[in-house]
Amino acid sequence: MALLEIKNLNVTYQMKEKEIAAVEDVSLSIEEGKPLGIVGESGSGKSTLAMAVLRMLPAGTKVEGEISLKGKELLTMPEAELKALRWKEMSVVFQKSMNTLSPVHKIERQLMDMYRVHDGQTPAKEIKQRLAQLLALVNLPERVLRSYPHELSGGQLQRVSIAASLMHNPPLVILDEATTALDVITQGQILNEIKELRDKMKVTWLLITHDISVVSSCCEQVAVMYAGRLMEYGTVEQVICHPAHPYTMGLLGSFPLLYGERENLKGIPGNMPDLSKKPEGCVFAPRCPYAKEECRCGRTGMMEIETGHLTACPVGRR
């Protein structure tokens, strides 16, 4: 059984005058031990998807479809049951997770409070031991516990957030642009630590990012999203080395390379469509260099071109 299974998920934000289809008909699954990366540009709906899994979308948002974690249906679950699940079965680290720490309390006190919200029984001494252990996992010295957030750097605070997300050994951790705001070297180090955690703690992550290099270095599966729709899905090897969707190709083509021939960078011309207007046909067609007449009218679903490699484009497939 898959760890997390998303089936035909639709998320629509209700505004005063319009509805915005932020996620449309997305189906994905994460197997235990096979981290999934979701790549997309801003406005592609990747964070909305994560928020839907966590059931943290603003009230009044229309969510349809099925999301199940270890076979338990999340969308219809009563709030109390969900509360017991959060942090123990799944946790999250945001891009600005460090800003959620209180500036006037020491890290130790805050982490202990967080621990107790989900487990009130454990004696303080045991929690402290556990915290020290967690900090060691993300390469932080123990003195961090006795510091205030302003005494630590951005990278250290983000490591504290990661340690906090792991405190109850959740099998699934959602990392929503968790390393984006950090410096190159710090980002690289934290990604290495995350990779090590996979073996040490048996944690599987859903990693959301706009940076393909992050996904290719620490995920096994990858899903490419554009304008709320899934464009391509498969293993990292399949999607990044042999992309079948023109959007994936464009995205890879616009990524600057450190080595090799220095040609002109190629972007993807045009802009993201207005999601409040339902496009007919493929949502990428207006920007697609291979678009044909058929792309602009009918929409096709995801099609499997080889085992586990799905694409939404019938043209790129040929």
Binding site: Q189, I212, S216
Partner: peptide, 10 residues
């Protein structure tokens, strides 16, 4: 810096 610069190729 160069050694931590991300690459798309897995």
């Amino acid at each position: 810096l160069l050694s931590y610069c991300g690459s798309v190729d897995p």
